[in-house]
């Protein structure tokens, strides 16, 4: 069953059309990466799921319930973590979580236990300072604790790693992939390596709609470039090899740079043996023979082009 479904979402800010026709759904127990350039409407989309911003038209369903603008009861299923979470600096983490717990209606006896568990989980137990003295990474971790407090079925994370250093990023990504075992996670970002690290489903937001959606590994397969990289032993052998390769009918391109030949070809599976035979018959010694893996970056650049 789909935990989240967006149907024909349109959003204009004045004359600016941020989203033109956004349709997507997220199935339960996936980690969904929402990718897009800055300003492509990622934050707007997330705020609409939370009922904080009103879509110009279209509707969103969370766990089958329609999201109502303003106070939406669907938020009880959701945990939300913004890019830069803002807290009341004069509170301690414990006080803040207590406030959140009271708002969501967690039972009084539960709040204390949940708070302890979560502070342990995010590594803030034993920190009794006021929040205003926290680093960005600590605030982000408290943000995760806050988002997980009501044991949400859907965890919405907006650009949560963008403002962090590599250590902070790793901590947050680890926490999110752990959270992904129990909840569905929607994770928006423009950092593609983060998506490759934790997401299993992706959607690429471009021109106001989701231009590509599906399981990450399938998408990578579909966008697989048929490309090879062959490194010869000495630089003078590279042009020779390139000339021989170009003569083969299935090779579309063979470019030399130094002693490396970059090859583009069709139907690698059927033709790979011919290349090996060529290398053997011409007795060109090679250092490296590699089929290039498609990266998410290639896919992304391809889609938004």
């Amino acid at each position: 069953m789909d935990i989240l479904r967006a149907e024909h979402i349109r959003k204009n800010f004045g004359s600016q059309h941020v989203l033109t026709d956004l349709n997507f759904s997220v199935s339960k127990h996936s980690i969904f990466g929402l990718i897009g350039k800055n300003g492509s409407g990622k934050t707007t989309t997330m705020k609409m799921i939370l009922g904080l911003i009103k879509p110009t038209s279209g509707s969103i369903y969370v766990c089958g319930e329609k999201v109502a603008y303003g106070d939406t009861p669907t938020n009880r299923h959701i945990g939300y973590l913004p890019d830069v979470p803002e807290f009341y600096g004069y509170m301690t983490a414990r006080e803040y979580l207590k406030l959140c717990g009271e708002i969501t209606g967690v039972r009084r006896s539960e709040i204390h236990k949940r708070t302890d568990e979560l502070l342990c989980l995010v590594g803030l137990n034993g920190v009794n300072r006021k929040i205003h003295s926290y680093s960005r990474g600590m605030k982000q971790r408290l943000g995760i604790a806050q988002a997980l407090l009501n044991e949400p079925e859907l965890l919405i994370c907006d650009e949560v790693t963008s403002a962090l250093d590599p250590v902070g990023r790793k901590e947050i990504l680890d926490l999110l992939s752990a959270a992904g075992k129990r909840a569905t996670v929607i994770f928006s970002t423009h950092i593609l390596s983060d998506v490759e690290r934790i997401c299993d489903q992706i959607g690429v937001l471009n021109n106001g709609q989701l231009e590509l959606q599906g399981p990450l590994n399938e998408i990578k397969q579909d966008y697989r470039q048929e490309a090879l990289q062959i490194e010869t032993l000495t630089p003078d052998q590279a042009p020779v090899l390139a000339a021989h390769l170009k003569a083969l009918p299935f090779i579309s391109k063979a470019e030399v740079s130094g002693r490396t030949v970059n090859v583009q070809l069709n139907h690698y599976e059927e033709n790979s043996l011919d290349i090996i035979r060529l290398l053997a018959s011409e007795s060109i010694p090679i250092l490296k023979y590699e089929r290039l893996e498609p990266t998410l970056e290639n896919v992304f650049m391809d889609v938004i082009r």
Binding site: P73, N75, R76, P82, Y88, T104, Q146
Partner: peptide, 12 residues
């Protein structure tokens, strides 16, 4: 400051 966002998202 944006301090209300998370609380509203919590269902306040």
């Amino acid at each position: 400051k944006g301090t209300l966002i998370m609380l509203l998202a919590k269902g306040l």
